[in-house]
């Protein structure tokens, strides 16, 4: 109930913010709506039991990337550039194609039986969230069908245990271990002799080097240079 309510609030904020980014012509207001949209995406991540990812989204996207973008707006906007508008024909064409794309996507999502698809995925050790959900549902059924008070109490206790386990929000430790190359969420409770699941050690290392390269590259690209004076091809 609460989850549903929160989902709708943040889904509407996300979509509304995104639409406002498209509809606004003023760059600073676009940045403001982008903050609304990305912040609500972070809230959706929290709703999806991805605490670490939600916090990372807030820190990196909303606190980092958007600040960088606003910084860029400040450095580049000088009156005449703050409102660079596309021609109405382009806008019409773009939004028309966008609407068609949206329709195709929504139709596609709607026509797939996702329960069937996820049932067909080889469940090599369910994710804890899924395990908890199924267990939870099972326990709830038990609770509903329980007749004696003892049964009822036992079922309630079990549900609380599941909740306590889920609330631990264990994705931090699991994500850390997976970047280490270990996958306890997959490899535990597996029959002996099975090959271990792949971790993310190599991608993690690659992305670390990538970030270092980007740091140096961006600093090199953005270094202070002689400002271009009005030359051919530039009209103010």
């Amino acid at each position: 109930m609460t989850e549903q309510l929160l989902f709708w609030v943040f889904a509407i904020l996300t979509c509304g913010g995104a639409v406002a980014v498209v509809a606004t012509q003023n760059v600073v207001r676009m940045a403001f709506w982008l903050v609304v949209s990305l912040g609500s995406v972070a809230a959706l991540f929290f709703l999806l039991h991805a605490d670490f990812l939600g916090a990372a989204q807030l820190l990196i996207y909303v606190g980092g990337t958007v600040v960088l973008l606003v910084f860029g707006v400040m450095l580049t906007a000088s009156g005449h550039t703050i409102k660079v508008q596309a021609s109405p024909a382009e806008v019409m064409l773009g939004s028309g194609v966008g609407l068609v794309l949206l329709f195709v996507l929504l139709f596609g999502i709607n026509s797939v039986d996702w329960a069937d698809v996820s049932a067909r995925i080889p469940a090599a050790g369910d994710s804890p969230a899924v395990v908890d959900e199924t267990q939870d549902r099972h326990l709830r059924e038990q609770l509903a069908s329980a007749t004696t008070p003892e049964e009822k109490a036992a079922a309630e206790e079990a549900i609380q245990a599941v909740h306590a386990r889920r609330q631990a929000g264990r994705t931090v430790r699991q994500l850390g271990l997976s970047f280490y190359g270990l996958r306890p969420d997959r490899d535990l409770n597996q029959p002996a002799g099975q090959s271990l699941a792949a971790g993310y050690l190599l991608p993690f290392e690659i992305i670390s080097i990538h970030l270092l390269v980007v740091l140096i590259g961006a600093a090199y690209l953005a270094r202070a240079k002689r400002r271009a004076t009005s030359g051919p091809g530039v009209d103010l």
Binding site: D51, F52, A55, A56, L58, G63, G169, R170, R173
Partner: peptide, 9 residues
């Protein structure tokens, strides 16, 4: 669980 990270964010 990631409270310290979240508060910095």
């Amino acid at each position: 669980e990631c409270g310290a990270f979240l508060i910095l964010a």
